[in-house]
Amino acid sequence: MKHLLGRVAVAAIAVAFASEAMATEWNVSLWGKRRAFTEHVEKLAELVSEKTNGEFTLNISYGGLSKNKENLDGISIGAFEMAQFCAGYHRDKNPTITVLELPFLGVANLQEEVAVSKAVYAHPAVQKDLARWNAKLLMTSPMPQYNIVGTGEPRSTLDSMKGMRVRATGGVGKAFAAIGAVPTSVTATEAYNAMESGVVDTVAFAPHAHLAFRTIDIADWWTENLNPGTVNCPVVVNTDAYEALSDSEREALDSSVDEAIAHYVDNYENLLTKWDGILKEKEVTRVHISDDDLAAFRAAAADPIREQWIKDMEAQGLPGQELYDLVMETLKKERM
Rank of each mutant, 00 (worst) to 15 (best):
Y62P: 01
A23P: 08
P304Y: 04
Y121N: 01
G317M: 07
E307S: 11
A14D: 01
G63E: 08
S256T: 06
S290P: 05
E50Q: 15
V41H: 03
W221P: 02
G152N: 11
P103L: 00
M195S: 00
A115S: 09
A204I: 03
L110P: 04
K69G: 13
I278F: 06
T189Q: 14
L279G: 04
K162E: 05
E322M: 04
M164E: 01
G163A: 08
L211E: 15
W309L: 05
V10W: 10
V114N: 07
G63F: 03
M336V: 05
N267T: 14
G32R: 09
Q127A: 13
A125H: 01
G88H: 10
L253G: 09
M143D: 12
I310S: 04
C233Y: 05
Y146S: 10
L72W: 02
M82D: 06
L137S: 02
P103H: 00
K282D: 11
E101A: 02
A83Y: 01
A175C: 05
Q127T: 12
R298W: 00
R165P: 01
T52M: 15
Y62F: 04
L105M: 13
Q111C: 07
I13Y: 11
G64P: 00
P142N: 06
D159T: 12
A36T: 13
S156W: 02
F104G: 00
C233G: 08
K280Q: 14
R335N: 03
H3E: 14
A16K: 12
G32S: 10
H40K: 10
R167V: 06
K274M: 05
M336Q: 14
L318C: 06
P154V: 12
L318E: 05
G180I: 05
M1D: 13
T230V: 06
E224A: 15
N71H: 10
T273P: 04
D240Q: 14
T230N: 06
D220G: 10
Y62V: 02
A209G: 06
A191P: 03
G64S: 03
A87T: 08
E259I: 02
V114T: 11
L253H: 07
I310M: 03
Y89L: 15
V172Q: 00
V284N: 02
